[in-house]
Amino acid sequence: MYKLVGELSQNNARKQVSAGNAAIAQGQLDFDFSDLLQIDSTAVTSMIEWQRQASQLKKTLHFHSVPASLVSLIQLYGLTGQFQLSPAERH
């Protein structure tokens, strides 16, 4: 499982996308968002890019522990059906 840590925002999106694409190329198809502390709408575009990369390889990504704020953005943009999402558990 590929674990995203810290931040996924406009500050580091290019770096995160590159690292995610490398993980996909190595066969990682499960992305864990549980250790992300900060996100913005750039996270959605990053997910789209990772999905595109996986699709080119005829693979399906699964996104785990997706923060509620990110799920809300995905819903707002009408992209819910584009991703395999497992929302973060509420405590």
Rank of each mutant, 00 (worst) to 15 (best):
G27K: 14
G27V: 10
G27R: 09
G27S: 12
G27I: 05
Q28W: 14
Q28Y: 15
L29C: 04
L29T: 15
L29N: 09
D30L: 12
D30Y: 12
D30V: 15
D30G: 03
D30P: 01
D30K: 15
D30S: 13
F31K: 06
F31G: 03
F31E: 00
D32Q: 02
D32Y: 04
D32E: 10
D32C: 04
F33M: 00
S34A: 14
D35T: 11
D35C: 12
L36W: 10
L36Q: 13
L36A: 09
L36Y: 12
L36K: 06
L36D: 08
L36M: 08
L37G: 08
L37F: 09
L37C: 08
Q38D: 04
Q38V: 15
Q38I: 15
Q38W: 07
I39A: 08
I39S: 03
I39G: 05
I39H: 09
I39E: 07
D40G: 07
D40F: 13
S41M: 07
T42P: 03
A43Q: 07
A43L: 07
V44A: 11
V44H: 08
V44R: 15
T45A: 12
T45K: 00
T45C: 06
T45I: 10
T45D: 15
S46W: 15
S46K: 05
S46N: 05
M47R: 03
M47Q: 09
M47V: 00
M47S: 00
M47F: 13
I48E: 05
I48S: 04
I48D: 01
E49C: 00
E49F: 11
E49P: 00
W50H: 01
W50I: 06
W50G: 03
W50S: 02
W50R: 03
Q51D: 15
Q51H: 11
R52G: 05
R52P: 00
R52I: 09
R52Y: 14
R52Q: 12
Q53M: 11
Q53D: 06
A54P: 06
A54S: 08
A54I: 13
A54L: 10
A54C: 10
A54K: 02
A54T: 08
S55N: 11
S55E: 08
Q56T: 13
L57H: 13
L57A: 08
K58T: 02
K58A: 14
K58P: 00
K58N: 08
K59D: 01
T60S: 11
T60E: 07
L61Y: 10
L61D: 01
L61W: 05
L61V: 07
L61P: 01
L61K: 01
F63H: 14
F63R: 02
H64S: 08
H64M: 07
H64E: 02
S65T: 12
S65A: 14
S65L: 09
S65M: 00
V66K: 06
P67K: 13
P67S: 07
P67N: 13
